[in-house]
């Protein structure tokens, strides 16, 4: 949860109880209605609500486009049944591709992922950031060869052919993966 201390949490709950409908005024001037859960999951928004006595129902958000904000709202609607987010401490607890939150980003373009990444970094939303990164890992990197990674990530190699050959020569010693617990 974003609000860490119990004092901040109680202040935040008190402030949110007073407000029924919270809107964000985005970069393009459009208003986007958000749920209280999004405020709780964002460090920036929850801090804003917990330290200010009188909170206006419309909050200016000049750095995020309304399209991106709507995607965030859609993401949280998708996982509304999920419990409070605790960052996974084990590799096996990470969100996998079977999770609807990870599959949510499957049709997104690279530009959209970039805008989302910036938005969740701006709002400091750990769950959204982890899900986006897990999507990238599942979709682009995991269990793929170097050539596939480059293709799916639209990355161009900047190694010379000689350096590529040196890589192959240096790493030709076989390695195998031990399944982590």
């Amino acid at each position: 949860m974003a609000a860490t201390t119990s004092t901040d949490m109680s202040t935040l709950n008190t402030a949110l109880d007073k407000i029924s409908n919270i809107k964000l005024k985005c970069k393009d001037g459009k208003l986007v209605t958000i749920s209280k859960r999004i405020i709780r999951e964002s460090e920036v928004l929850s801090h804003n609500f917990s330290v200010v006595d009188e909170v206006e129902q419309t909050i200016p958000l000049p750095d995020i486009h309304s399209t991106v904000m709507k995607q965030i709202v859609a993401f949280y609607d998708l996982i509304e049944d999920d419990s409070e987010y605790v960052p996974p401490s084990k590799y096996t607890d990470r969100p996998t591709k079977d999770h609807p939150g990870v599959g949510f980003f499957s049709n997104f373009t690279v530009e959209e992922l970039q805008a989302l990444t910036h938005a969740c970094g701006y709002l400091d939303m750990p769950r959204l950031q982890d899900f986006i990164l897990c999507h990238m890992i599942v979709d682009i990197i995991q269990d793929r060869e170097i050539k596939e990674i480059r293709e799916r990530g639209m990355m161009k190699t900047d190694y010379t052919p000689e350096e590529e050959a040196e890589f192959v020569k240096r790493h030709e010693a076989p390695i195998e993966v031990v399944q982590p617990q």
Binding site: P87, P88, S89, Y91, A173, I175, E176, V178, P180
Partner: peptide, 16 residues
């Protein structure tokens, strides 16, 4: 802080 992972070298690998 996220994960623990291993890389095992195959036995007999001279370059490990």
């Amino acid at each position: 802080y996220r994960l623990t992972s291993s890389v095992a070298y195959k036995p007999g690998c001279p370059n490990h």
